[in-house]
């Protein structure tokens, strides 16, 4: 229990009168990659937003590095080391690539130079506004921006969605390198063929509840068919 870097306990979340999460439990160990799986509308993004403290919760607890962060605002959670790559990239469109990166900078090993070295495309596009980048470049920028916060846990919400296969491959290679570098990951993605070899463990959400925990090898075709519709 105490070795987990991040832990979600019995999350219950409402959007107005409608309940989105009915009890989500999840644990991410240091250096671990956890795949958060489930069909559309099952609460994956809400779970991520709750972990990042962007979503108020009705019941449950969010722990990070042994500390209860349930009551913290999102910027404080981010400062503790939770880096988010949000769904749909969401870069600051009118800012340049460099401005997007330096706005997020916090002290640590991930500097502007290292991020540009990791994604050389961002160095080439340094003075372009984010709005003029391709989808893949924007995704690199979104990951680079999260890395600039020097996170201990990187949360990726549909990081390869809507990208060309070649670019998607590049992004998966980058995610793999980050894992090998020791970064903890929580990944939501529909490309299970890429996600599962990377993951140490999986959590499946069904109608706002975590209904299955296990390793990728435990994921039987029956489970996949029942919860993921594969």
């Amino acid at each position: 229990m105490t070795t987990a870097l991040a832990r979600l306990e019995g999350l219950e979340v409402f959007y107005g009168a409608s309940q989105a999460l009915f009890g989500v439990d999840l644990e991410i160990g240091p250096g671990q990659a956890v795949a958060l799986l489930g069909r559309n509308g099952m609460g994956k993004t809400t779970t991520i937003r709750t972990l990042c403290r962007m979503q108020p919760l009705y019941r449950g607890k969010v722990w990070f590095d042994g500390r209860d962060i349930t009551a913290l605002p999102s910027f404080r959670a981010a400062r503790l080391g939770i880096g988010l790559v949000p769904e749909g990239r969401r870069c600051f469109a009118s800012l340049t690539v460099t401005e997007n990166l330096i706005a997020a900078a916090r002290p640590g090993p991930w500097t502007l130079a290292r991020v540009q070295d990791f994604f050389p495309r961002l160095a080439e596009r340094a003075d372009q506004t984010a709005a003029t980048l391709s989808g893949g470049e924007q995704q690199m920028l979104a990951i680079g921006r999260a890395l600039m916060t020097n996170p201990r846990l990187l949360v990726l919400d549909e990081a390869t969605e809507g990208l060309a296969p070649v670019i998607r491959r590049e992004i998966w290679t980058a995610i793999g390198e980050l894992k090998r570098a020791g970064l903890s990951l929580l990944v939501v993605d529909k490309t299970l063929s890429e996600l599962l070899p990377l993951a140490d463990s999986c959590v499946i959400l069904e109608r706002g509840q975590s209904v299955w925990h296990g390793t990728p090898t435990d994921l039987s075709p029956e489970v996949e068919q029942r919860y993921l519709g594969l």
């Binding site: 990042c52 880096g83 600051f92 469109a93 800012l95 916090r106 916060t149």
Partner: peptide
């Protein structure tokens, strides 16, 4: 850069650790 980013979306800025 943070000031300009907030003009676009304050929530996204908070997500990178800035108040």
């Amino acid at each position: 850069a943070a000031l300009m980013a907030i003009r676009q979306n304050a929530d996204r800025v908070a997500a990178v650790g800035i108040s």
